[in-house]
Design a protein around this nucleic acid. Structure first.
Lengths: 116, 116
DNA sequence: TGGCACTATATAGGCAGTCTAGGCAATGCG
DNA sequence: CGCATTGCCTAGACTGCCTATATAGTGCCA
């Protein structure tokens, strides 16, 4: 029945990215690393998911991008929230909490019961 | 960018159904209703999602089904957890909590910041 | 009698977001 | 030189939830 953690991630990835970018500008590779580290490896979005998502968010006017040369290594594409991105983040974060609480209302309840 | 609440649901639907069936046997239509009511309409899985999901879970050995005639109206197909279903529920519920906490570690943090 | 709403299950086909798998380029290290 | 790491990117596959539709029995009301 598919990859569970990918499916859980679905619909949350955008919210996660927006949340990280709320406090400081980050580049793609860094976003992936942050999420991995801040969740002890539990969440790790693949680059094949992240970059297209970033592009979509940019197209949707949620992010602005800016290329930055580095002294060493490849150049980085930094992203930061637009005003619209900030307001979408607020909505998204709110729906996440509602969704989370709704699920908890059903899942966290664990009464004893018989087995078939 | 698609239907957000559907995407959030993705990967959780199975867990929700298993959770409900942990306490008592239910039929499909009833499951949908319960979830809608217990979450004040916030979560409502469509029949086109629910029935195929139930079939898949049955095929996977998580549920047993049993047809029951009713005095009035169409007959109902009641589902109840198998032993395997119960153990999968335990795993699923656990990953849900881990996922939930991981997301909260990133999303719930909302520092002030400038806008682009 | 016809029409509608509700209960109840079911399926086919579509959509979209994540993944797999690959490519490109620069740096540093053994 | 080969390899790991950083860093970005894309095409195509996968898959689970969706829309839309079908079937069928019941009850209600005009």
């Amino acid at each position: 029945m598919g990859n569970e953690s990918s499916d859980l991630l679905r619909g949350t990835l955008t919210t996660l990215v927006l949340s990280l970018l709320a406090s400081k500008r980050l580049y793609g590779y860094e976003i992936a690393k942050e999420i991995r580290e801040r969740t002890d490896g539990l969440l790790h979005l693949k680059e094949g998911s992240l970059y297209p998502a970033l592009h979509a968010m940019e197209r949707a006017g949620l992010l602005n991008a800016e290329w930055v040369e580095t002294r060493q290594g490849p150049k980085r594409k930094y992203y930061l929230l637009t005003r619209k991105g900030r307001s979408v983040l607020a909505e998204r974060a709110s729906s996440w909490r509602q969704f989370r609480d709704a699920v908890d209302r059903i899942v966290t309840t664990q009464p004893e019961g018989g087995t078939a």
